[in-house]
Design a protein around this nucleic acid. Sequence first.
RNA 1: CGGGGCGUAGCGCAGCUUGGUAGCGCGCCUGCUUUGGGAGCAGGAUGUCGUAGGUUCGAAUCCUAUCGCCCCGACCA
Length: 584
Amino acid sequence: MRASQIFIPTLKETPAEAELVSHQLLLRGGFIRRLASGLYTWMPLGLRVLRRIERVVREEMDRSGAQEVLMPVVQPAELWQESGRWEKYGPELLRLKDRHQRDFCLGPTHEEVITDLARREIHSYRQLPVNFYQIQTKFRDEIRPRFGLMRGREFIMKDAYSFHMDHASLEITYQSMYDAYQRTFTRLGLDFRAVEADNGAIGGKRSHEFHVLADSGEDAIVSCSHCDYAANMEKASSPAPAAEQEALLEAAQVATPGIRSVNGQAKHLGIATSKIVKTVLVLAEDKPYLLLLRGDDSLNLIKAAHALQVDELRMATPEEAEAATGAPVGFIGPKNLPESLPVLADLRVLGLCNFSSGANMADLHWINLNWERDLPRPDAADLREVTAGDACPHCQQGILGIRRGIEVGHVFQLGQTYSEKMGLSVLDESGRDALVTMGCYGIGVSRVAAAAVEQHFDDRGIIWPAALTPFDVGIVAIHARKSPEVAAAAQALHDRLEKAGYSVLLDDRDERPGVQFATMDLIGLPHRVVVSDKVLAQNVWEYRARRATENTLLSETELMAQLAAGLSGAADQEQQKHQEQAHG
RNA sequence: CGGGGCGUAGCGCAGCUUGGUAGCGCGCCUGCUUUGGGAGCAGGAUGUCGUAGGUUCGAAUCCUAUCGCCCCGACCA
């Protein structure tokens, strides 16, 4: 491809709307253009990147035995009403009416459609297991689209849905999808982690998210320094330290005028924040619950929702807290509470001796409280958010670290939720109806493009991993309009490289060399070959890898070797990096 | 949805406080010179100042409404 024949509208200045580097560079490099909030057009260069991602995804899905289909974007409301999600999904579901005033929505995901397909077509256990996937545009009417491709309203996703007679069969496909994702993201040249994730209210036994590591990531992920344990914040845990063994001191009430914060309390009483039990009032489906946490710990609301087995949970307002406990915020404590108020403690709270808490009266706190002696031992669950430096729950040696990640994939065991709601069953070996068990597996295809840029760029532009680059090699023909020799040699090299299987962008524009170099760097092709009179006179090619700062002069044989090594070399490196991660 | 900010040429911005109908840089077009890291000189084109009302002799500027865009916002008792 010649640069004069492909539309690459680069921008010298950074558009004001772009915050993230990936967004800035994809705009500046002419990969994407914004149409409206959260809606982007893929320009010729961007589309080439997208197609390459799709290719890898498709190959790995096919390899895993999944079968490609393509389902409609527009979906009838009836299906969503059956699953209950027409009401539940909320404003993210873009609803519309056709000319007959019938309700439809734009598909944010396809569980309903695929389940409907399965119940129409699959009737026998002999047809299972089966796994269908598609690569398709989704629409979610995000509250706040941002970061360009990272959180758009319209985006491209690979989603797969598997159907099984039993959980054991689901486990096999789940594992095969997990493996396919490992291969996919490795091949894409991304530094990523598979993390254990919470399944939420739907249930199911296992769920993993695949995160590309990047400081700009929207999610915090926890990983062990020693073993391969990794989890998201909702799921991550750390073992509670051994219960304290101290001589029990006499409980007492201490005046603490105006002291409402844990830090203030610790300072006033001259104790560590870890010796304080803080009491948090939450409302679950409008019912109040008291949660107890150590003063130096933080509450994770999702863990709490799970522990209380509710869908939604929120912090009470100070007014609500006072109404429920009779004490102002800051002085609420577990001793002498109204009996009707359920109490749930974090596991770490149970191991405390001689702790301090609010006394359920303004300006008063307890010190030296002890379980059983002064108040009953409450039920307990893991409620606290892990912090960097915590012990790993899986191995003895490691400590947990927190990094930022961009979620690019998710594998999930749906179980029988949709089969039940939508009546998907088949006849088993004994001729009886059996509910089908499902799994679902997503990859954010368009998001991968942005995530790759977040991970691979420098001050001059993008540095594409070999598998994603819109062109493998860029040829810069210097002053080609003035030198027929350069023009001819560059074109000939272009043709030979394409014949050798590389995709090549030949910059034949009538531009100054500086402009050509700047363009090549910005759009991030991994390999650059310069053709000039100077170089031709020496009968060599001038080569430079995108990451390098120096040119090297190579014979054509050496150049070919360099390109081959560069491409596979990159893949090997990523593979190795991945293995190091996997094996810790 | 709440809070903050911004809409002026394709892009980045100034002008607005103190009303007198528009300017800079990049980009674009033409010519000449230049030519290994986003060139120089000269000339040129491009705006119903987001939209709609209002105030005024007169509005980019003041007022109102509306639309669009960007940023922040679950949480420590």
